[in-house]
Design a protein around this nucleic acid. Structure first.
Lengths: 185, 185
DNA sequence: GCGTGTGAAAACCTTCACAGCT
DNA sequence: AGCTGTGAAGGTTTTCACACGC
């Protein structure tokens, strides 16, 4: 409650946007409601995650716990370095990026993850878009251009450090609550 | 401009909170203004970044471009695995976590980065707090407790994927602009 | 003329408070 | 009695529009 910096009224109003699932005098059926929230968030179907760039970051992401519990599956791994092709990471073979179009083209609801150097990021991005990926998560410090039909999201280490620096410099400013994963059942 | 989803009035009002640095009829002295923004964000001094957990993620972070250009310096690296101690990453030796208090205690304005497994995250966090770190950036999927004087920020791969899934499921919702690094001069 | 700084208006979001159902 | 759903009040943020300095 104080973690969200919200009160009961706000929670009720927010939930009311999903539909009217509460029972006056009794409360909410939590597991039913959670299912509705998952549906609304698009988490009721499986997403295929494709990682491009099998350096340290790509390895870390491929092995991430995320794939153990959530509705996200690691579907394919790519790199451009011939020395890495064929290596198995988290049970999947690393393929050459030139196979990306072929392999990813046949996957629906695929999310591309860019873990390449910044210099290669736009090229990787183009290949992912071309292959029909619906969303891209970019860890490279580069600004990417995508068509409006593709959702793009950036994660940037230096942004996170800068945000922390700001709040340390201004302790009087209350940080806004961060997004938290929907994990429970 | 459309990247920020803002208009001229908002930019002017925002800048006016820093002070009145514009010249009517002429505009802003961009490099002076940028300096003021950097000062306000706390980026006018150096920050010492301490990374704990030298797995794939820790390696990737230690080698990150962030340390080449920004006012953030990689100050020390730690791990608990004796096999990794002494290894050099990005010009720094990997030290054992039991040295953390000693090494980090002497550093001012230090930011701790947790790149350990989730199971170790709270322990690492406690050591960092104990050593006087002013801010912590946590990459482990764990919810951490810190005293209110320490700024805490989470980066979670599964949150990012969930956010993307939501926007793909709801193309009619315009994503809110993401934080971007202050990089230019 | 041009572009900033800023009160006032408008839009938006949060909180209150209560009617109504269990 | 207890808890939801929701209009209305209250508060905050964004936009407008214009006075004033270059």
């Amino acid at each position: 409650m104080q973690r969200l910096r919200a009160n009961a009224a706000k929670v009720r109003k927010d939930l009311s946007h999903l539909g009217t699932y509460g029972t006056p005098g009794t409360g909410y059926d939590v597991s039913f409601l959670l299912g509705q929230v998952r549906r609304e968030l698009g988490l009721d179907r499986e997403w295929q995650v494709v990682i491009v760039g099998m350096g340290n970051l790509g390895h870390a992401l491929a092995r991430s716990q995320t794939f153990a519990t959530q509705n996200f599956r690691a579907a394919a791994l790519f790199d451009i370095d011939p020395g890495k092709i064929g290596e198995e990471v988290a049970g999947l073979p690393v393929r050459h990026v030139c196979e990306l179009a072929k392999v990813v083209g046949g996957i629906s609801r695929s999310i591309g993850v860019i873990a390449s150097p910044a210099s290669a990021a736009q090229d990787v991005c183009n290949r992912l878009v071309e292959a029909g990926t619906v969303a891209i998560l970019n860890f490279a410090p580069a600004i990417l251009a995508v068509p409006p039909s593709v959702q793009l999201r950036q994660v940037d280490f230096s942004v996170e450090l800068q945000v922390l620096a700001f709040y340390v410099a201004h302790p009087e400013v209350t940080p806004e609550p961060q997004d938290a994963p929907l994990s429970g059942l």
